[in-house]
Write a protein that binds this DNA or RNA. Sequence first.
DNA 1: GGGGAAATAT
DNA 2: CATATTTCCC
Length: 242
Amino acid sequence: MRENESNWFAKWEEQLPNPEELIPISQTLITPDLAMAFDIGTSNNPPNNHNSGEFDSSELGGDEPARTLKRPRLVWTPQLHKRFVDAVAHLGIKNAVPKTIMQLMNIEGLTRENVASHLQKYRLYLKRMQGLSAGGSGFGSGGDPVTDHLFASSPVPPHFLHQSHHNSDGFLQYMPVAALQQQQQQQMAGNHVHRHFGSAHLSRQPNQHVHMVGTPVRNAYVDDLESANGQKALTLFPVGDD
DNA sequence: GGGGAAATAT
DNA sequence: CATATTTCCC
């Protein structure tokens, strides 16, 4: 009997599938590409991402553990970055500082530090871009100009480059977004605005032909931002002077 | 407090 | 190794 017992265990153990053969119980039904195309979030898209490291037990009914606790590492998805770029475009380089950008982006859980860090990298990226677009006559050496996966994913508004010649400020008119109104740390009572970045609007591509009322505009960068109220502000940035 | 750059961390 | 976070300084 004893022999029998160990035997069945051995057999049972042998028949266990290898870890590689296991199929995860929870699978992503929507591929990242599809998710991106339809602007819907995948299971791990929103700022609360994989919890790496310690995590407090309370997730049931827990409303805002976000405060004071170690936030999960933020992943800058292309959608998130696009919203970042749009926000910066709205504000203009001048007012594009972490705090204002963060407010304009209006994304739950996004901190000023997150934006500041990203802004730092983005500025470096822009500098590199205008660096090799200006004097970079030689092609052969370096390698791919845009190895920056993230930044390349979202078009850079043309006026970001062109180190501000004559225009010091105020040359781009923008509509203030409602979300930007000075709202202190006061969160609206009972405000469950769980918004997903990206919303439901397919973003228009740059260099498309945009026609406004009686005013055809060619080569314009169009960004769209949406406030918490659902108000929308469009900004057109003419590229050339037609 | 808040922006920016550099130093760490993952 | 790329990228996000933390630290430090103004």
